[in-house]
């Protein structure tokens, strides 16, 4: 519970830090990207705190490249 609140606090701090600047200068595209990234970051961090089993992108990469890796291993052993 406590880490989750901490993360939310940090997220709001970050947005308070950046948002005024973006709103003032009317940078809508940046604002949207900022919000999306912040949401991704916050949700990932909260999910980690709650010990949700998140998928590991490196595992997908491993899946794609395993055949090449096996090929290298067999030819160069």
């Amino acid at each position: 519970m406590l880490p989750t609140i901490g993360i939310l606090v940090i997220s709001t701090a970050i947005s308070l830090f950046e948002m005024p600047n973006l709103l003032k200068n009317n940078k809508t595209k940046e604002l949207w990207v900022f919000i999306i990234l912040l949401l991704i970051g916050t949700s990932l961090s909260i999910a980690l705190c709650l010990k949700v089993n998140l998928p590991n992108p490196l595992d997908w990469i491993t899946f794609i490249f395993k055949p090449f890796s096996d090929f290298i291993m067999t030819t160069l052993k």
């Binding site: 940090i10 997220s11 970050i14 830090f17 950046e18 600047n21 973006l22 940078k27 595209k29 940046e30 604002l31 990207v33 900022f34 990234l37 912040l38 991704i40 970051g41 916050t42 990932l44 961090s45 999910a47 980690l48 998140l54 590991n56 992108p57 490196l58």
Partner: peptide, 27 residues
């Protein structure tokens, strides 16, 4: 990629994602 001139607003949120990624990427 997104044709944004100033990358600075992206730094902090991406940093946050990165910390989360660093814990996911290698158990």
């Amino acid at each position: 990629i997104l044709k944004i001139k100033d990358y600075r607003p992206l730094v902090l949120p991406m940093g946050m994602i990165l910390i989360a990624i660093s814990l996911i990427v290698h158990p």
